Simulated assay, not measured.
Amino acid sequence: MARYNMWQNASLMAAADTLDDAARLADRGAFFGGIMGTFSHLLWADRLWMSRVDGWDAPEGGIAESAALCTDWAAFEDARDAADRRILGWAGRLDIEALSGELTWHSRAAGREVSLPTWQCVAHFFNHQTHHRGQIHAMLTAAGARPGDTDLVFMPEDVGL
């Protein structure tokens, strides 16, 4: 799933590269506004989850501020690529022991401490990415961009190598 994450983010960014800043920043009625806001939220959430499972620095702000994490497209692309490479390295180190424990954190969204099996948190992490990439894909398509294939079975074998 880390390889799929990397592949899909690269595909969506390549499609977004065909748009200008105004099109990426336009409010398209999505929960996080538009293409850039949703990309930013996803990077913010990835950093938040990785702070819980791999000790990354947690991002500033909460969900409401997450859409404003990145406003510069080139800086975002660099940050997204770096995060995807770090996620790939982390996933490569995971083993059954790491996934069999329990993860406990204070959820600002829920306003309380939460404990769940680590495997469930990791599954959520990757599912959350797919959910928001689907929104980005739809917005890109509506804006006239052409994202690539999304079928997991067609992921090139060299992704992440």
Rank of each mutant, 00 (worst) to 15 (best):
M1C: 03
A2Q: 02
Y4P: 06
N5A: 08
M6E: 09
W7I: 07
Q8K: 03
M13W: 01
A16P: 06
D17R: 07
L25Y: 08
L25A: 15
D27P: 13
D27T: 12
R28T: 13
G29H: 12
G33C: 04
G34K: 02
M36P: 01
M36K: 04
H41T: 04
H41C: 06
H41E: 07
H41F: 02
L42R: 04
A45C: 10
R47A: 11
M50T: 11
R52D: 09
G55K: 06
W56Y: 10
D57T: 14
D57S: 14
A58S: 15
A58W: 06
P59H: 11
G61I: 03
G61N: 11
G62F: 02
A64H: 04
E65Y: 00
S66C: 05
L69M: 15
L69V: 11
L69R: 13
C70Q: 10
D72V: 11
A75L: 08
F76M: 13
F76D: 02
E77S: 10
E77A: 15
D78Y: 00
A79T: 09
A79R: 13
A82Q: 09
A83T: 12
A83H: 04
D84V: 01
D84W: 01
R85W: 01
R85M: 05
R85D: 08
R86S: 12
I87Y: 01
I87S: 02
G92Q: 10
G92F: 07
R93L: 05
L94F: 02
L94I: 08
L94E: 06
L94A: 10
I96K: 13
L99A: 12
L99I: 12
E102T: 14
T104I: 03
W105T: 10
W105S: 09
W105N: 09
H106E: 11
R108D: 15
R108N: 14
A109R: 12
A110E: 15
G111Y: 03
R112K: 15
E113F: 02
V114T: 07
V114K: 10
V114D: 08
S115Q: 12
L116Q: 12
L116A: 13
L116R: 14
T118G: 02
T118S: 09
T118R: 14
T118C: 10
W119E: 13
W119V: 15
Q120H: 13
V122I: 15
V122R: 12
V122T: 12
H124N: 12
H124S: 09
F125Y: 14
F126H: 14
H128A: 08
Q129Y: 01
R133F: 05
G134V: 00
I136F: 01
H137V: 06
H137M: 04
A138I: 04
A138R: 08
M139L: 15
L140E: 07
G144N: 11
G144C: 11
G144F: 05
R146E: 14
G148S: 02
D149G: 03
D149L: 00
D149W: 00
T150D: 04
D151W: 01
V153H: 07
F154M: 09
D158W: 02
D158K: 03
D158S: 11
V159S: 01
V159E: 04
G160V: 01
G160S: 08
